[in-house]
Design a protein around this nucleic acid. Sequence first.
DNA 1: ACACTTAGTGTATTAAAAACACATAAAGTG
DNA 2: CACTTTATGTGTTTTTAATACACTAAGTGT
Lengths: 229, 229
Amino acid sequence: MAAKYKYPRPALTVDCVILGLDEDELKVLLIERGIEPYEGKWAIPGGFVVPGESVDAAARRELLEETGLKNVFLEQLYTFGDPDRDPREHVVSVAYYALTNLAGHEIKADTDARSAAWFAVHDVPELAFDHAKILEVALLRLQGKVRYQPIGFELLPRKFTLTQLQKLYEIILEKPIDKRNFRKKILSMDVLIELDEIQQGVAHRAARLYSFNEKEYRQKEKKGFSFEL
Amino acid sequence: MAAKYKYPRPALTVDCVILGLDEDELKVLLIERGIEPYEGKWAIPGGFVVPGESVDAAARRELLEETGLKNVFLEQLYTFGDPDRDPREHVVSVAYYALTNLAGHEIKADTDARSAAWFAVHDVPELAFDHAKILEVALLRLQGKVRYQPIGFELLPRKFTLTQLQKLYEIILEKPIDKRNFRKKILSMDVLIELDEIQQGVAHRAARLYSFNEKEYRQKEKKGFSFEL
DNA sequence: ACACTTAGTGTATTAAAAACACATAAAGTG
DNA sequence: CACTTTATGTGTTTTTAATACACTAAGTGT
């Protein structure tokens, strides 16, 4: 298992900021560290890159191992390479962010005796390493990207109401949106399928359900169409 | 110099896509490889990250060592982590892109007996490793970023004409721009200083020179202003 | 003085963003 | 079952921003 190299090299890890939507808050999945350094502190899930596996694959593997999540939106965020971000040695971390709908997948909480939990992104405990910074960058990226790429749908169940969708954007962008203008715009893009189905079990008029037409979007995209909110 | 670790780890490098503007073309600085693999092929300058130096610092160091460039715009691009991007072993590369004005700095061509040269970005020789991909990503990033951040100025001399600026945007975005609309918009942002100076040595009416008011821009930025072209 | 080249300038049209309010449907309550 | 509660669904006007478009001015070279 041990390895010898002609020149020293930094260690390489991946870390995944896993975001989910819960009612009217964005949440992030954190794990409690069981070992030093930062034992007992909360951290973004991650792990070492094994030579021979692509860094993307390492991120997917860690995501699966630590949370059981599969087939979710996962994208590279930024690489954090400060030599003192880890007190042990120089550890460079390639950070990713994942989007998932909190209601859909159950998170298997404990993988290796550590507990995992969702926290509101703006109310997290003190984080290990530079993970607070990583989370901050992830949220900024999400804010930037959600406006010109339809990645918001990853945070919703497959069938959703326009109100849910609007609320999602309001949460991410942290500003209110006009209902009529929002609906006009999103519907005019023709990337939503209006389902013959309405919301169940609500104590008021039930809203129509929609789903995102990814196929249609990909075709439009090829023809130069750009999703812009 | 040799190093031993408990677990194997990929090697870590930085690569810098260095872009410059030459008349009416974007150019990229490439170096000819003097050693295997890909000996004789052209490549983006780069090198190994030394433990203890931040990855950003490594990128700056390589930039300086290989080109003599200092104090230029340099930003992280993306991390390329495919295990077979280097035939020797798994080498993960954190790519950066740098912007500089070609006329301003002289590039010291030969550092370690390898030659360096500028190539038109859309007419480069076959590149080593996955460097063609890295270049492509860099150009896409530049196209995306130039529209909402005033990074284009990095490619121009400190004093420039509005026509030069417009041409720059036309080159990067690969589409023509209306002269009057362009001037109207860029001037309305109030981030250019109109100098009491005009172009010298041209065989026609000399254009007024301008410079970018970075200080003013930073202040506006804080107040929520966003540069958008 | 004339030809050539690029600089510099304003307005009208069109398209997109923003602002804004009420009737409707369904469930819950007494 | 009338009534209250709650969220749904829907158009028009106003304002702002984007686009389209053509001629005169200034300077160099012959």
